[in-house]
Design a protein around this nucleic acid. Structure first.
Lengths: 231, 231
DNA sequence: TATATTCATTGACCTATATCAGTCCGATAT
DNA sequence: ATATCGGACTGATATAGGTCAATGAATATA
């Protein structure tokens, strides 16, 4: 399989992944050694929870979600991933198995980076290692916030959080695209699909959002923030 | 205030904090510069959520808990902290405010370490920076696991998890001491105090534990693991 | 010793949320 | 066009879990 054809060489990726901007050309070369890219179709599993974490992945094109297979056949979606984000680090750094899966939401192009090469560069470049630590710390703190939200807020608050997250961090628009199913909304907010639908309909009746098939348009993010605050 | 009197110099701490074992004498000296220790009484706040993260703390003696003030006047206890653990790193590394408080459960002696000194050493010693990253990654992955447990398991499962955690990771004994109140059990498992009491009583009726005042003795960790699995 | 005060405990009741059993609708296959 | 299938949706019902009020035990304070 021809890598150049798939992802236009590694230059793009090196330029745009914020994490890599601290690296010299030689260091980039180390990272790029053994690197390869693969195209995934909608619904395909890019990384499977439980497999050995030998590679990090960098999302080059498309759209994916990270999720955990939890208890009672339920999934929890951690977040959505757009290009130029690195995923799979934490498990790799502790030398373990992936604790979550990464699944393509659309056609997605992904680059696999050898962990050993990553570690080599981590130890050789202190600016880079600081960046990585900041990133990891940020992940941890966000996880704590999410933990509190999921365990203490009721459904309306959690759904408001989900809508705010998708709108401001993923779609960068008042409109949340049809890639997100009701089941996904449920898996992100940790409620049943039926409940997710109910709450969304309720938001629509209250003229906070408009539902158009799977597309969701946010009319009042002010109201959403209120609801999020109230819990 | 005489530091030597309080904590016996820094040598103990340097020896025993696992994170510090990668450091040379000079590096330890940097870390120890501007370092000072303070003794806290039961219930006192060691670090307050929302304050600027200028210091890491190292717990030298005693017993503390980290917790988040969440929604609707509820707290979530993240974990309990025993000597030779460093706390407060993540917020410090991203240069922000602490996202959780640290509260003394008993009389506790704590050492404050200047973040800038920590960062200096982090950038100069790659073995150390790797250790720090592994630690941070581990925190993150545990947080994810906890997140899934709290959001997907029902009360019995969550309480079983709490008992297993306290027994195997904190008390290293079948007996959980009277330092942990019912409210704390509730705050750790994210349920109301009344519910926590009810579940514990139920476990007692089923001869899984014995309640003796606030002391809890675990009779069958096998059964607890079953309950934890079932969710 | 008497009196507050805090915390564990319990039962009764209420609410949030899940589950179930459908209907409806749009997309694809025949 | 017709069958079929997977979502979205909805109402009825069941249940987990929260809230409240009362009691008792333990501990602190006057």
């Amino acid at each position: 399989m021809n890598v150049a054809k798939l992802c236009n060489g590694c230059d793009d990726c090196n330029q745009k992944a914020p994490m890599f901007q601290a690296l010299t050309d030689e260091e980039l070369m180390i990272i790029n050694k053994d690197r390869y890219s693969v195209r995934f179709h909608e619904g395909e599993v890019i990384l499977k929870q439980g497999t050995k974490a030998d590679y990090l992945i960098s999302v080059v094109e498309g759209f994916a979600k990270t999720c955990i297979e939890g208890h009672n056949e339920r999934n929890l979606i951690l977040d959505y991933v757009k290009p130029w984000r690195l995923v799979g680090g934490p498990a790799a750094h502790v030398g373990g198995k992936h604790r979550y899966s990464v699944i393509a939401v659309q056609e997605t192009l992904v680059c696999f980076i050898d962990v050993n090469n990553f570690t080599k560069v981590f130890t050789s470049n202190s600016e880079f290692s600081e960046k990585v630590l900041v990133h990891c710390s940020g992940n941890y703190l966000s996880a704590l916030e999410r933990m509190v939200g999921l365990s203490q807020k009721q459904m309306h608050g959690r759904m408001a959080d989900a809508l705010i997250y998708l709108s401001t961090e993923i779609y960068l628009s008042q409109i949340i695209g049809s890639e997100i199913s009701r089941q996904d909304m449920a898996d992100y907010t940790s409620m049943s699909k039926d409940s997710a639908i109910r709450i969304l309909k309720e938001f629509e009746r209250d003229e906070i959002i408009i539902l158009d098939g799977k597309r969701i348009e946010i009319l009042s993010d002010g109201r959403l923030h209120e609801i999020s605050q109230r819990g």
